[in-house]
Amino acid sequence: MLSWLWRHCDTILAALPPQRLLALDVLRGLTITAMILVNNPGSWSHVYGPLRHAQWHGWTITDLIFPFFIVIVGMSLQLSLQRQEQLSQALVIRQAVFRSARLFGLGLFLALFYYNFADPAYSYLEQKLLTVRWLGVLQRLALVYFATVLIVLYCGSRGRIAWLIGLCAVYLAAMLYAPYQDSYGNQFRGLWLFGNSFAAWLDHNVLGASHVYYRNATPFAFDPEGLWSSLPAVASCLSGVLLMQWLQSGRNLAQKIRGLLFVGLIAVWLAELWHFSLPINKSLWTPSFVLLSSGYCAIAMAACVWLCDVKRWRRWSAPFLVFGANAILFFMLAGVAARILVMIPVGDTVLKSWLFNRLLQPLLGNLNGSLAFALVFLLLSYLLMHWCYRKGHIFKV
């Protein structure tokens, strides 16, 4: 069995193009794997603490997954634009517009892909179509990607750093000093509360209370992938561009790894200190959260480069290459499968709950059964994604 597994991994690694940056592909694969794992427990009532998001201020390891993906988008973007240097800026922008539109459309498709077959009174028009959530993970990626493309095209290294700092500064200025009021005329300013911040007020009034994730938040419904918090999310993506520039510099590999570790550790340290005055908060995507998540991503990238390119320990990375090579397809298929599991009625429950309650929970208990469900989901996903990888079916957005 072990020898078969090694051969399986060696076959995957042998097919990797020589010019690919293995560490980046591995980090992308690790990130999307973690995202699917935490998104698909057997029961949301039974999840280990580290696999949950922080309730509000603070962070768990799960809170780092999405910003890791955004930083990786920035790193990949820097590589991609360098390969497209011969193209005109107008063509690059046109391609970015189409790619962003497709990402946004895929996000809306997932938001609308649900029907409650168990409820005869369910109205898809009223309960889904007319109350669609406008923003989400893929929609944020679309907006952040397009904004970052424009900044990278028209700005050099100093300009990119200036934009990163400027976006965080503009975000902070509005969050701290912009006055806003609720429907009763109560005035607010400088709050970082659940449902009461400048970002929440903007989402409530622009997107609409019925089109965001936290629809019952008071006094303002808001979205964790909302409008104003997209500004520092662009800063996160720019941090990825800058990290890749460092990796592309003429320094030797050891210097690059030490640089990533140094920057990462300093960023994490500063973020934790800043947390006392500016809370680390994923839903608001605060600048302290940008520092923290980008810092940890730099450390993770340094670890992947050291393992894959210095120590040449690569076999462990093969499954993550399969997931990372088709990250968007993996995210879409996992999202569709997860929704189907809660759409199919089985007796007085749905298929997902039936599988958990009848098979895994009695055998493994609440927490371990819920985690086992997510792991089985990943294993079955791997079989499909490996088939796509072997056949060369790579979904390009």
Rank of each mutant, 00 (worst) to 15 (best):
Q78D: 15
W269S: 14
S197K: 00
V149I: 12
L307I: 15
Y213I: 11
V170Y: 02
V234A: 03
L79K: 11
R251G: 12
S157D: 13
P279C: 07
F98S: 15
L91I: 09
L77W: 01
R215N: 08
R312D: 13
L64T: 15
G295K: 08
H211C: 08
F194C: 09
E225F: 05
F66C: 06
E85T: 14
R215T: 15
A199R: 03
G240Y: 05
L51I: 09
P120K: 00
H386S: 00
R52C: 12
R83P: 07
W274Y: 13
L261S: 09
D348C: 00
L202I: 03
W6C: 12
A111E: 11
M35Q: 08
A147G: 14
T11Q: 13
I93E: 09
G136Q: 06
L321W: 09
W59G: 09
L129T: 00
L30G: 10
S210A: 14
A96H: 00
T349G: 03
A174S: 04
N326A: 02
I340F: 00
N186M: 10
G29Y: 08
S76R: 07
F373E: 01
G29A: 12
I299T: 02
A147M: 11
S197F: 03
L193N: 15
S123C: 08
N357L: 09
L202Y: 07
A298R: 05
S249K: 05
A142E: 03
V38K: 06
W134H: 13
F98Q: 15
P50C: 05
A298Q: 07
Y296V: 13
N366C: 05
